Every structure is written in C-alpha cells, then in structure tokens.
Amino acid sequence: MTRRLAFPVLALMLFAVAACDNAKAQTVQRTLPDDATLLTLSESAERDVTPDTMRARLMAQATSESAATSQSSVNAAMTRALNRVKALGLEVETGSYNTYQESPQRPQSLPAGAKPPAPLWRAQQSLIITAKDDAKLLEAVGALQTEGLALQELGYTLSREQQRGQQDEMFAEALQRLGARAEKAAAALDMRFEGWARVGLNGGMIARPVMMKAMAMSARAEAAPPVAAAGEQTISVTVDGEAILRRR
C-alpha cells in the first residue's frame, strides 16, 4: 500500500513547490507598476595604486650523496634564517619542502676500476618574508643571501587593508556613476528614474603582483643587499543593476 502512494505523494509535493515558486514570481512581478520598465546597466571604477607591501621568497638548498645530510643542512639554514628574520620583527613563513634524487650523467667511458658518479640527494625549502618596511626587508634579504640562501622572487603587493580600503572607495564611486547613467538613460527615453529593482557589487579584482625574478647569489658571497622600487598596480571594480523607469 505504501508503494502505491509514494508516487502520488511525490508528485503532489513537486506540484506544491512549483506552485510556491510561481506565486513568488508573480508576487515579484506585481510589486512593479504596470508602466514600469527595467533597464539593465553596469558601471566600473579603476585606479592605479602604489602597493604598500614588499614580499620576498628565498630558498635554502643543499646537495649530498646522503638524503639525511642534505636535509640536515637545509634544516639548519632555515632555523638560522627564521631566527634572524623574527629578530627584525618581520612577518615570515616557510614554504614547500622538497627532497629528491638526482642522477648525474654517466660518462661515455670510464677508466678501469673507476666507479660511475653516485646519485645525489637535493633538499630545498622556501622562506617567504612580507613587510611594509622596504629597507628592513631588503636588509634581511641581503643578510640571508650572504648566508647562502638564494633569492627567487622580490616584488610588491597590496595588503588586505589597502585592498579593502581602495575597493570601498571605488564601489562608492561606481555606484554614483551607475545612478548618473540611470538618470541620463531615463531622460533620453523621456522617462523618469524611480529607483533600483536590483543592484549587484562584483568583487574588486586586483592585478596579480608583478614579482621581479632575482638571480641566485653564490653561497657565502659578500654582496650588497638587493634594491627594489614599487610600481603602480591597477585595481578595478564593477557594479550592475536594474533601474526602474516610468513614464513622465
């Protein structure tokens, strides 16, 4: 008996849901005046901003015939690097850690009794430093280069606070432009703008930070710290909406 009622009950439930959806749609339509026209508009705002944060990524690496020896060298180098950076009060985090084996190219001919080159184990781990104080970060990078870490990337990016602050201002600017466009469109159509049926704020988009590739410094080399200058990055936001227009 239960099996016979399952399909009718399910059909009744689906019919009820569909009826509710139709009722909601009709309710939304009835909220608009009969002479109303919906006009879809969009507007954007864009500006060039100088990033407030510098970011550097360095790599500690070691090679040995023993995986344990390579990893031990990297671990020691990273410990020293973390202590140095934290002592300067900079934001630091460790990145990926990789250990893999490299097989040297086998010579075409070997002297009698000579052994082929042994496989080597390479270990490496990255270190990422972020700071708003350019001079202090560059000083730290220079010191770590001297200790044998290789500088992989150096560049600028927007902090979360700067990003949100800029986006809030730009959304307000874009919304003002959107309202002005609605007024002009209504006037061109000999109608009047009465408000919005819907408005959407499309999340601000930030250009990816341009990182300057850096050449690796030789281990323990005495060298001046790197230099860098911040360039501008373009931020843009978009808003869209459905304007309600009515006859004059």
Rank of each mutant, 00 (worst) to 15 (best):
M1N: 10
M1S: 14
R3C: 09
R3D: 14
A6L: 15
P8S: 07
P8F: 12
V9R: 06
V9T: 11
A11S: 10
L12G: 10
A16T: 10
C20M: 14
D21R: 09
N22A: 12
A23Q: 14
V28K: 14
L32N: 01
D34M: 09
D34A: 15
L39I: 11
T40A: 13
S42N: 10
S44I: 04
E46H: 02
E46L: 08
P51A: 03
P51L: 05
P51R: 03
T53W: 04
M54P: 00
R55C: 10
R57N: 10
A60D: 06
A60G: 07
A67F: 03
A68D: 13
S70K: 04
Q71I: 02
A76P: 00
R80G: 06
L82W: 05
R84M: 08
V85E: 04
K86L: 09
E93D: 13
T94G: 07
Y97H: 09
N98S: 12
T99R: 02
E102W: 00
P104K: 06
Q105I: 10
L110Y: 15
P111W: 09
A114G: 03
W121F: 15
R122P: 01
A123T: 10
S126G: 14
I128S: 07
A131P: 13
K132T: 15
L137D: 07
L138Q: 10
A143I: 04
A143H: 04
Q145Y: 05
Q145I: 05
T146M: 06
T146W: 01
E147T: 03
G148D: 05
A150M: 08
L151Y: 02
Q152F: 02
E153P: 00
G155C: 10
L158H: 07
S159L: 08
E161P: 00
Q166R: 05
D168L: 13
E169L: 15
F171M: 06
F171W: 08
A172W: 13
A172Q: 15
E173L: 10
E173Y: 03
A174S: 12
L175P: 01
Q176L: 15
R177M: 11
E183F: 11
A187L: 13
A187G: 06
L189P: 00
D190Q: 14
M191S: 08
M191Y: 05
F193H: 04
A197N: 09
A197Q: 09
R198C: 05
V199Y: 01
N202F: 13
R208V: 07
M212A: 14
A214V: 15
M215S: 13
A216E: 07
M217P: 04
A219M: 07
A219E: 12
R220I: 02
A223E: 02
A223S: 11
A224V: 04
P225Q: 07
P225T: 11
P226H: 03
A228D: 08
A229P: 01
G231L: 02
G231Q: 08
E232K: 14
T234K: 11
T234Y: 01
T234Q: 12
V239N: 01
E242N: 13
E242D: 15
A243P: 00
I244G: 00
L245M: 12
R247M: 12
R248C: 01
R248F: 09
